[in-house]
Amino acid sequence: MCVKRVPQVGGRIVITPDGQDVETRMSGFAISPHEECAVEEAVRLTQRLGGTATVLTLGPPAAAEQLRDALAIGAGHGILLETDGREWGPIATAAAITDAVRRKAAAGDSLGYDLLLFGNEAADTGDYQVGVRVAESLGWPCATGIKHLEVDGATVRARREYRGTGETFEFGLPAVISVKEGINLPRYPSLPGRLRAKRAVLEQHQPQWSADGLRKTGLRVPAERRQQATVLGSGPDAVPALVQLLDELGVLR
């Protein structure tokens, strides 16, 4: 599964003075909730069906922390595609991930990966495309936004909701699946898991950066829409005022 190190955003997003990045001096880093679920799903699948779950990230050397978090939960192997801290676009990211997948298949120690799990979208860029691009360059089938996954022999059955209707996709392995939060409830790492993760040796590569055709010129915080709330009162005494308000808003039936 592929995960991306992004700043952990708390109550407020602060932008660096040059307007180019999210301020991270006061915050930690994490992977997106969708990707946490991808990691959990991969660990469950390998526990049930055998095999190894490999976690891969493309990012700065410090992204090893996110690999170790996944190893602590039960992934068996970690790959760091190391960057110099520059922002990579989805085309370049997908190309580097595709190379890593091909490298594994070419290594000859096995037949390569059967299933690539992605998050539906990265928390920071929300590009919604790296998984699809990898699928296209490998010629593998792909489903996105998945909330329920079954692997049965060499067949995957993946389900999602679309505007109140269920959509099921069924195809053969190898395949690419992007998952959404809600597919499972990720576990917390155990102490032995953490120790194992700390000692694990990571595989490392340095892929070549390339421009993507979409260039960020700056970031900004959108103008706040709301002001301080009007306090109707405290405790149950405020209920009559609340009822009157609901009436005025036209939501009482």
Binding site: P90, I91, E121, Y128, Q129, V132, S137, T144, G213
Partner: peptide, 20 residues
């Protein structure tokens, strides 16, 4: 979900960037 997915495929089969 559909629009984003279809545009991701369009970007992938044409090799062009998609601005989301």
């Amino acid at each position: 979900d559909r629009g984003s997915e279809v545009m991701a495929w369009l970007g992938a089969i044409t090799g062009k960037p998609v601005a989301a």
